[in-house]
Design a protein around this nucleic acid. Structure first.
Lengths: 145, 145
DNA sequence: ACTTTATTGAGAATGATTCTCAAGTAACTT
DNA sequence: AAGTTACTTGAGAATCATTCTCAATAAAGT
């Protein structure tokens, strides 16, 4: 999907809920797609302001909630005391490896783990709606100082 | 290990760092062991106060940090916007299944997953220092209303 | 353009956690 | 047992991320 198509999909999703398409909402999604990493509110805030957009933190949080709700973004907890968000369109599912020293976030995905998770939930007759899996490490770089 | 032995071990750990054994510190560990569940600061606070102990939230947080640091407790993030802590002595390692509807926390442990995690870290030459793995579900009870 | 209704920004409010600091207390010394 | 030193404590202020409030603004339909 091209970026334009993704944004159109988002616009459609918004209108579908009798919500309104605004420059701020589009800009947040655009920013998430510009930065494949894991971004926090203030990074997005600084970006948009740097691009001369009039926007408030409140609106960014509100928009991120929308994006998560409609499946365009994922909220993650990296144990830093604040949330990070990542674009979720056209990305394969993955979990995170976080270096406790330098903070670098690497991604991983393991089909076997994914499968076991589903089995565990099935066994207890629960419907899985999501998961969060983080490995905390001292990364290769940090180990070698 | 008996409870007395665990508490003695904690006292030893504390003294070993030139810190002091105080009634508040012991009481927090005691409370964690009284309640095998996953407790948050305010629950502990209410408990200790109910037991006529003079204690402040600040001290509870400070003590929980100590307990985590010395391996007597584990801090976990259940996605509620505050931390929970659990006793970590004499408990087998486990991860958590959290019902997004009723909030019930169930534990699980899967050796295969544990093994894969280690393999993943070894492959990238990182030293694993911890992990957090949560499955978010709608539990059997909630599914059947 | 006009109307309706959702959205916005600013700043206040919230809630969890951390910090400050004077008063208190553990533990060592005699 | 009393004195000394250094770590701890509680109260409340401070902080930080996030959410809320509300009057002003701007989509989208007519």
């Amino acid at each position: 999907m091209t970026r334009k198509q993704i944004i159109n999909k988002f616009k459609k999703a918004i209108r579908n809920e009798q919500l309104k398409v605004t420059p701020q909402r589009v800009a947040v999604l655009d920013d998430l797609m510009d930065h494949p990493g894991h971004r926090e509110c203030d990074e997005i805030f600084d970006d948009l302001r740097a691009n001369d957009m009039k926007v408030s933190r409140a609106t960014i949080y509100r928009t991120l909630d929308l994006l998560v709700k409609y499946g365009f973004a994922k909220k993650l907890n990296t144990g830093e005391g604040r949330s990070r968000f990542e674009n979720r369109i056209d990305t394969h599912h993955h979990d995170h490896i976080i270096c406790n020293k330098c903070g670098t976030i690497t991604e991983f995905c393991n089909d076997e783990i994914e499968k076991i998770q589903i089995d565990i939930c099935n066994d207890m007759d629960a419907q899985i709606v999501g998961h969060e899996h983080q490995l905390f490490v001292i990364c290769a770089d940090c180990r070698n100082n």
